[in-house]
Every structure is written in structure tokens, then in C-alpha cells.
């Protein structure tokens, strides 16, 4: 059990570093979604099933969707990532 916890924890840490040091914003948002759903797995390992369901439905789906809509609207108004 300890090795599983350590594996998921290291995955979360590496995912967080990838989110911060990613060049493209869209890739960073998708990686944040992966980190969020993995944290939901960790909540389930801590026997917090209520929190796991809430994190999977709100943190992983709706937050990622809101970030993506913001990027889409920014690009429609003339935002260019490369500049």
C-alpha cells in the first residue's frame, strides 16, 4: 500500500511541475485536468469518497472546461500565444 501511495504522490508532484513549466497554455490546462483526476484517486485512497466524487465532477470537468472557454474567447479577441 505504501508503494502505491508513493507512486501516486510522485505522479502528482511531477504533474504539478509539468503544469508550471509547460510552454503552451492549452497543454498546461490539460495537464491540470490530469492532476485533478489523480488527486481524486488519492482522496479515494484516503477513504473520502464524498470528496472524491465532488473533485472528479467539479475539479476535473468544470474547471478545465472554464479554462478552455476563456482561452477560446481570448483567441477570438486577438490573443496570440507566440508573441
Amino acid at each position: 500500500m505504501i508503494y502505491w501511495i508513493a507512486a501516486v504522490g510522485i505522479f502528482l508532484f511531477l504533474g504539478g511541475i509539468t503544469v508550471i513549466f509547460q510552454k503552451s497554455i492549452k497543454n498546461a490546462v490539460i495537464t491540470f485536468g490530469i492532476v485533478s483526476i489523480t488527486s481524486s484517486l488519492m482522496f479515494a485512497m484516503m477513504k473520502a469518497y464524498d470528496v472524491a466524487i465532488t473533485e472528479a465532477s467539479i475539479g476535473a470537468v468544470l474547471t478545465t472546461a472554464l479554462f478552455f472557454w476563456t482561452i477560446k474567447r481570448l483567441e477570438e479577441e486577438g490573443y496570440n500565444e507566440k508573441k
Partner: peptide, 21 residues
Amino acid sequence: NIIKILLGLNLMETGINLFVV
């Protein structure tokens, strides 16, 4: 980038939730 800062804020929030549980 502001969106990167907001992503960092959300990561921090997830971490604090994990810690409290």
C-alpha cells in the same frame, strides 16, 4: 501569464485539500 498564475493557485488549492483530508 495570468492563466498560468491561476493554474498555480488551483494546484495550491488541490494540495491544501489533500493535506486537510
